[in-house]
Design a protein around this nucleic acid. Structure first.
Length: 876
DNA sequence: CGATCCCGCCACATT
DNA sequence: AATGTGGCGGGATCG
């Protein structure tokens, strides 16, 4: 229809035959616009019509089959093909005339002829892959649509994908600027980096083991989700400063999806990504059930994207045979290694872009129109200096970021769902599936998400330097000085109440912070109880109250708003809420690390924890939830948990785990300093949040722990994952072994046993089986998974891959042999802002148990929380 | 019959 | 209100 229209529009050549085929279309197109050299003029068309083009045309005309073949071929040789399509010149006329003859084409342009991939080729053919800097090419959607004989809608599909790779940028309404591939490598690099952070582990796992996919998937998904949140930031920001401008509305899923999809490839070792996996990873559905339709839709979109990417010569279709059968997949055939340019960020890009673009279209430059965007970018990005906003374009798209946030939330939820599904599917075990459980909530517990410590996730290895830390990190943390400050303050002051953690882009420093959020607290509530429980568990139960009190006293400072005293109650509540421990506590093993660990003070450990909590906790702690109010809840929860624990204890399996995860309020914060320059040989881990006092305490109790800063030889680290928790906690339930001793031991272990992963846990460090079995390789397929104790697990979560060091809070590591355990990977780096989002209680909790037990409540709460806070401001 | 994915409705965003 | 964008999924076509 379009074609006809066009012909009408540009009746130069009465096309008797409709331009049915692509080839024809091409031909026709030229005809119409033949005279209009506008495009040509503007666009430098690098490739002149190829001599073979005519031939091809003829061939195609000859038979549909041939055409198809040609088309297919074209896909692989986009450039050449494109040229054909592009060339609208007189030659084509001739061709057309000739071709006109082909009626068959008209008769029915096969579907293939209309395929997006082909269309994309045509589109690409119109523009030079590497336009001269001097020339700027502006793309008019309407024009292109008419030329190509398609609806504008289709052009959007193409342009959106191209935009995600920065091959084009939107300049104004209906206007895009063609950049070509000059920046492609940078973009890819950026995506790769972002992808590693987000999906690194997942992909790694996948590749390592296909067998375990299920679990892996789950984990990955989780991670993905968590990171997905970030992504947008990354993505948009990354691309260019401007990119931000683009998103609005629903975040433009196609663009984001495209980037994510590409990331998967870049992160994948095999460079092959199956559609279903990609879809699952990319789906962000809240509902588990929904999946089917959603999945279907996602796949459709992926096909759209894949078609464009195929036309770009970045991927090609392949099939992978798995146990389940043959699955469609795509293999990355684009560049794998990227030059270092990327670092530059916007500026480089702009540079790379020829002046031409700058003037008019450089996407990068554009960023500015919306302040919001700009801000956001900055904040999100971590500061990339965009040059700027050189110019606004009239219709430059602006978009509210909020949406994104929502999106993130939804994404998270979706991921959870996905994970759930996946798990269910794979495992067949529904229990685990609870969406919440999977959710990696950014907020509180999220990263730790231990969601399924029990079951599901295998160890996650993260390349990402940043571990997901529980909240609490403040932007300040960024600076090296931070640690000191934190310590000094010991309290919350430094930490932002809301912020969970902050991730710094800087290559050299990474801060991991865990903060408690007020919201979570509630969910976590049980924490108080838990805490108490723990202790109790540890030995007899100590009245929680007592413990709390103590903690409160000591920690008083932490609770900013409250006085030390007054708050006793509040504090407690807060603490409770904050303390993730509570959750953890449930488990017996858990028990009191302190007692064990710190002989002197049973409470000490507790104190430490509290301190953290306090620190983390923001003043904001819900007063409403006084002990009383809270307690009831807590008590209930506690009870549940206790029960669960009890129940669970016996069976380390998934079940027990679920609960614990939920929240961990207190999270130790760490500062990781990469061994960049002079420090190449060492890795430093600093606990940022601990207050001096805390530290001192720790020290007194545990020498090893006391050390605020850990220096690990990078080489050593490389071999094992290192997990450190600031506070020392009791050993996890799972590993009853010398908990206290274990911690210290484990620490030392690192040095001693090269192979064994070392964990230092704030809470008790359990080196469950693991320590004993050094052989594990975290990364290996075998997955020496680290399991976090359910309790701790949530709190910590770090696992690492690339980065030599992983920070974990109170994590217990278990080796996994069982798929059940879930690795927590806190890699995400999220902007402080997001905190609110993350605070989903649901996330905290147990994924597994969740559904069954409290799912409803929790969920509702979580949802609420999610929306609670979205801070508009950017930290930066 | 599953894999692909075209097509275009329609909601939301921007003018 | 008009127009630009683009999510989305029905259902056709391919293999």
């Amino acid at each position: 229809e379009n074609i006809f229209d066009r012909s009408r529009m540009a009746p130069k050549t009465p096309i008797k035959n409709e331009p049915v085929d692509l080839s024809k279309q091409k031909v026709c197109t030229p005809e119409r616009n033949p005279i209009t050299p506008v495009k040509h003029v503007d666009r430098p068309q690098p490739d002149p019509w190829t001599p073979t083009a005519n031939l091809k045309m003829l061939v195609s005309a000859a038979s549909p089959d041939m055409r198809d073949r040609e088309k297919k071929k074209e896909l692989f040789r986009p450039i050449e093909n494109s040229e054909q399509s592009d060339t609208p010149d007189s030659l084509q006329y001739d061709m057309v005339d000739d071709s006109t003859v082909d009626e068959f084409e008209k008769q029915r342009p096969s579907r293939k002829q209309k395929s997006l991939g082909l269309l994309c080729q045509k589109f690409l053919a119109r523009y030079p892959s590497y336009p001269l800097s001097t020339e700027k090419t502006t793309i008019s959607l309407d024009e292109v649509a008419s030329i190509l004989g398609v609806e504008r809608r289709r052009i959007y599909d193409i342009v959106n994908v191209l935009e995600s790779l920065h091959l084009v940028s939107r300049v104004a309404k209906n206007q895009y600027c063609w950049h070509g591939r000059h920046n492609l490598s940078q973009t890819l690099k950026t995506l790769q980096e972002a992808g590693e952070m987000q999906y690194g582990e997942l992909m790694t796992f996948f590749q390592h083991k296909e067998q375990d996919l299920e679990y892996k998937f789950v984990e990955r998904k989780k991670e993905t989700i968590s990171e997905s949140q970030f992504r947008p930031l990354l993505d948009f920001s990354e691309p260019d400063c401007t990119s931000a401008s683009a998103n609005s509305r629903k975040d433009k899923s196609l663009r984001i999806m495209s980037q994510k999809f590409v990331m998967l490839f870049l992160v994948s070792k095999t460079k092959i990504v199956t559609l279903d996996i990609a879809a699952k990873i990319l789906i962000e559905d809240t509902q588990d059930t929904v999946d089917h339709s959603k999945f279907k839709t996602k796949v459709r979109r992926l096909y759209d994207i894949a078609n464009v990417l195929t036309s770009l010569g970045l991927i090609k279709k392949v099939h992978v045979t798995e146990e389940r059968g043959r699955k469609p997949a795509f293999k990355w055939i684009g560049p794998v290694e990227f030059p270092g340019k990327t670092d530059e960020g916007c500026s480089p890009t702009s540079e790379s872009l020829p002046e031409t673009q700058r003037g008019a279209c450089a996407p990068y430059q554009i960023c500015a129109t919306g302040k919001q965007r700009f801000t956001r970018h900055a904040s999100f990005n971590g500061a990339q200096p965009c040059e700027g906003t050189r110019r606004k374009v009239s219709s430059e798209p602006s978009s509210p970021r909020q949406e994104r946030q929502d999106e993130y939330c939804s994404k998270i939820i979706n991921l959870a769902a996905v994970c759930r599904q996946k798990i269910e599917e794979d495992t067949g075990n529904p229990s685990i599936t609870s969406p919440l459980s999977f959710l990696p909530v950014p907020g509180d517990s999220d990263f730790c998400i231990n969601p399924l410590p029990q079951a599901v996730f295998p160890v996650v290895q993260t390349d990402v330097p940043c571990l997901p830390v529980p909240n609490g990190i403040s932007s300040q943390a960024l600076h090296p000085s931070m640690p000191a400050t934190c310590k000094t303050e010991n309290g919350k002051p430094t930490l932002l109440p809301n912020q969970h953690f902050l991730c710094l882009p800087s290559s050299s420093l990474f801060m991991l912070c865990g903060g408690l959020q007020e919201n979570n607290l509630r969910e976590t509530l049980p924490a108080t109880g838990d805490v108490g429980t723990r202790r109790a568990e540890a030995q007899a139960a100590i009245p929680p109250a007592a413990c709390q009190k103590r903690s409160s006293h000591r920690c008083t400072s932490p609770s900013a708003p409250t006085d030390d005293e007054e708050p006793a109650a509040k504090k407690q509540t807060v603490e409770q809420s904050d303390v993730p421990l509570s959750l953890v506590v449930p488990k017996k093993p858990f028990e009191c690390p302190k007692a064990a660990s710190s002989p002197g003070s049973g409470c000490t450990s507790a104190e430490h924890l509290e301190a953290f909590h306090l620190d983390l906790t923001s003043p904001a702690v819900p007063e409403a939830a006084d002990k009383e109010s809270t307690k009831p809840l807590d008590s209930q929860e506690q009870e549940k948990r206790c029960q669960n624990k009890d129940l669970d204890e016996p069976s380390p399996g998934k079940e027990h785990i679920s609960k614990e995860n939920a929240n961990q309020p207190f999270l130790p914060q760490y500062l990781y300093v990469r061994p960049t320059a002079g420090l190449s040989s060492f890795n430093f881990l600093f606990s940022a949040n601990q207050g001096p006092g805390a530290i001192s305490l720790a020290a007194s109790q545990l020498p090893s722990l006391s050390v605020p800063c850990v220096v690990v030889p990078s080489a050593a680290l490389a071999s094992f994952p290192l997990v450190c928790s600031p506070t020392i906690t009791s050993p996890l339930s799972p590993v009853p072994n010398g908990s206290l001793a274990a911690t210290s031991v484990s620490f030392s272990m690192s040095g001693l046993a090269p192979t064994a992963p070392v964990f230092i846990g704030t809470t008790a460090v359990a080196t469950p089986k693991v320590s004993p079995a050094p052989s594990l390789d975290p990364q290996q397929p075998a997955h020496p998974a680290l399991h976090l104790s359910p309790v701790l697990a949530r709190s910590c979560g770090a696992v690492k891959l690339d980065s030599p060091v992983c920070m974990g809070h109170p994590v217990t590591l278990l080796k996994l042999q069982q798929p059940s355990s879930t690795p927590l990977t806190p890699k995400n780096i999220r902007p402080a802002r997001h905190e609110a989002f993350f605070k989903t209680p649901g996330s905290l909790g147990d994924r597994v148990a969740w559904k069954k037990n409290e799912g409803h409540q929790t969920r509702s709460a979580s949802s609420v929380q999610r929306r609670l806070e979205i801070s508009s401001t950017s930290p930066d």
